[in-house]
Nucleic acid binder design. Sequence first.
DNA 1: CGGAGCGTTGAGCGAAGTCAAGATGTGTGG
DNA 2: CCACACATCTTGACTTCGCTCAACGCTCCG
Lengths: 263, 263
Amino acid sequence: MSGFKRVEPIRIPVPQLNQHHRHVLIRKLDRLIPLAEIDASALANLSVGMRQVGPRTDLLHEGDTPDEVILMLDGFAARCKFQPTGKRQILAHLLPGDLCEPDAGYLSRLDFSVCTLSACMVAFISRRALASTLERYPATAHALRLVKLQEEAISREWLVNVGCRSALERMAHLLCELLVRLQAVGFATRDGYGLPITQQDLGDTLGLSNVHVNRTLKVMRDQNLVEWRGRQLKILDLSRLQVIAAFKLGYLHSTAGHDILAQ
Amino acid sequence: MSGFKRVEPIRIPVPQLNQHHRHVLIRKLDRLIPLAEIDASALANLSVGMRQVGPRTDLLHEGDTPDEVILMLDGFAARCKFQPTGKRQILAHLLPGDLCEPDAGYLSRLDFSVCTLSACMVAFISRRALASTLERYPATAHALRLVKLQEEAISREWLVNVGCRSALERMAHLLCELLVRLQAVGFATRDGYGLPITQQDLGDTLGLSNVHVNRTLKVMRDQNLVEWRGRQLKILDLSRLQVIAAFKLGYLHSTAGHDILAQ
DNA sequence: CGGAGCGTTGAGCGAAGTCAAGATGTGTGG
DNA sequence: CCACACATCTTGACTTCGCTCAACGCTCCG
C-alpha cells in the first residue's frame, strides 16, 4: 500500500535503439493501421536513447511537465495516483510499445506519476522531435490518434471493472486485456505471457487488497483457469476466462487476438 | 439497475441558438483560456439547432458513428456502459457547456451510449462544420484540447473514486467536482446547484447501490454537510466536504472555484 | 383517484478488507 | 556457495462495508 520508493531512474545511456526494439512501436502501429515504409523509417529514425530502469522507480513525477516522451521497450510500468491515506490507484498499464504522455500539454502539470512495476527498458524521445515527425508524417500522427482512442477505451473498461464487476470478473478481464495487448506487440504467446508484477500491483490496479488478489488467484488456480509461476502467466482456459470477464474484444479496436478470441 | 428506456430523442427543431444559450460553451472556454472576440463569434456562428429532450433518453447509442456533435445547453446527461447483467456504469457526466464526442473518430464506433439523466436542452452541431471552424480558429481548437485534458483528469479521478475511496468519500468528491464544474458555466451558486438526477444515477456513477447512496446521503444530511431537496443541492459545509473527499481543485485546471475552495 | 417512479428504512447476508503469522522466494554480501 | 535479510506470497480468523430483498411513504401526473 505505502512505502513505494521514489528514486530517480538510473539512466544508463545507450546510443541508439537497435532493430529489435525500435520495432516494438512500429509493429504496434502497423498492426493497428498498416504503416507505409516511409512512416516506419521516420519513427525508426527518431533519435532516442535507451535506458535500463529498475522496478518501483518513478519515471515521471506528479507535478512534472516533462519535455521527453517515454517509449516503453520492455517491462511493465504504470500511471498511478497516490492518496493521502497512502493508497495507490493504478490508472493504466504501460506495456512495450506504449508511449507515455505524448500529449501531456506543454502547459499542464501531470496530476499523476508514472512508475515502473518491473525492471524496464525505456527510451526517452524528445517531445519536439516527435511533434515534428508527426507534422511531417500524417499517417503516423493518425496512427497515434488511434492508439489514444484505444487507451481511452481501455480506461473506460477499467472504470466498469472497479465499478461493476466482482473480484473474479475484474481479474479475468484484466488478464484477457493484457493477453490481447501483449500479443499485439509480440510479447505474448497464444496462451500466456510474462507478467513481472506483484499481487499488490494487481490489487492497486483492480481496486482490491493484496490479500484478496491472492485469494482470487487461488480460485482461478483451483478452477484451472490460469497458472502464474515465476512471473510467467499461463492461461489454461481462455474461453472460460473470457466468459467470466464478459470480455469483448471489440473495444480494443485491435487486429490482434482475433484468431484466438471469439468476438 | 435495468429498465432504462431506449427511446429516440424527441427533436423539436429550433432555428438558432439564442444569445443566452450560445454563451454556455463560450463562457466555459473563455474561463479556461481567454478567448478572442473572433473565436467567440466563430463559435456563436456555428449553425446549430436546439432540441428539447426528455429524461432517460438515448442521445447516442453504443455502436453508432455519429456525424453530429452534441452540445449540452441545459440539464444532465451521461456517457454510460451497460453490462450483460443489466448493471450500468456511468463513465462521465455531461453538463451544460460540454461537447459530446467531438473527437469520436469518423472510423470508430462508440463503445458506450450517451443518455440524458434529466430533461435536457441540447444542440446538434455538424461535425464537419465544427472541424472546419477549428481549423480556421486555432485558439478555439486549443481551448477544446484543454477541455479534453480536463475531462481526462476527471475520469482519472473517478477511477480513484471507485478504486480507493469509501462511499462517503466518493459522494463528497463528486459533489465537490460538480460544484466547480457547474460554477465554471454559471450553473451553480456559491453553495449549491440544481442536481436533477436520481439516486440511482448517482449510484451508477459511484459504483454504489441506490440503497447505499440513500444511506450515505442520510449521513451527510445528519452531519449537516449537504441538503438535497426538490432537485436542489445545497452545500452547508463545503470545507468539511472537501476534507472528507480529499478534493484538490488543481486537477480541473479551472479558474472556477478558486475564490471559494482552498487549494 | 390510482399508479408509477422515486426515496426511505430495516433486517440479514456476503464479498472484500484488515490483521497477523508463517512459508516461500529472491537478491546480496561475505 | 552459503547465509541472511527482505520482499512477496499464502492462509486463517475476524470485521466491516456495502448489497440484496422487502416493505412502506411520498410526490407527481394522468
